[in-house]
Amino acid sequence: MSHAPHDHAHHHLPTNLTKAFLIGIGLNLIFVIIEAGAGLWLESLALLSDAGHNLSDVISLVLALVAIKVSQKKPNDRFTFGYSKSTTLVSLFNAILLMVAVGAIGWEAINRFGQVQPLNGKWITLVSLVGILINTLTALLFLKDKDHDLNVKGAYLHMAADALVSLGVVISGLVIMYTNWYWIDSVVSLLIILVIIAGTWGLLKESLRLSLDGVPRGVDLGAIREYLINIEGVQEVHDLHVWALSTTDNSLTVHLVLTEDQQENLLPRIHDDLFHKFNIAHATIQLEEPGNKEQCLHTH
Rank of each mutant, 00 (worst) to 15 (best):
F31N: 00
Q72T: 12
S60C: 12
L29K: 11
G52W: 04
N54P: 07
S71K: 13
L40F: 15
Q72D: 06
V32E: 13
P75A: 11
V66H: 01
K74Q: 14
L42V: 11
K73P: 00
A46Y: 05
I34R: 07
K74C: 04
N54Q: 09
L55G: 06
L42D: 13
A46S: 15
A36S: 13
E35G: 03
V62W: 10
V70T: 09
I30V: 15
L65A: 06
I33S: 14
I30Y: 13
A36W: 09
G52Y: 01
G26K: 10
N54F: 02
S60V: 13
F31Q: 01
A46I: 03
N28Q: 13
L63V: 08
A64H: 11
V66Y: 01
F31L: 05
P75M: 08
S60H: 04
D57Y: 05
D77N: 14
I25Q: 09
L45Q: 12
A51Y: 02
S49C: 09
S44N: 10
I59D: 02
S44E: 09
N76G: 06
I68C: 09
S49G: 15
G52C: 01
I34A: 12
L63D: 05
I68N: 08
L29C: 12
S56N: 14
L61P: 08
S49E: 06
E35D: 07
E43C: 07
A64M: 04
W41Q: 08
A36H: 02
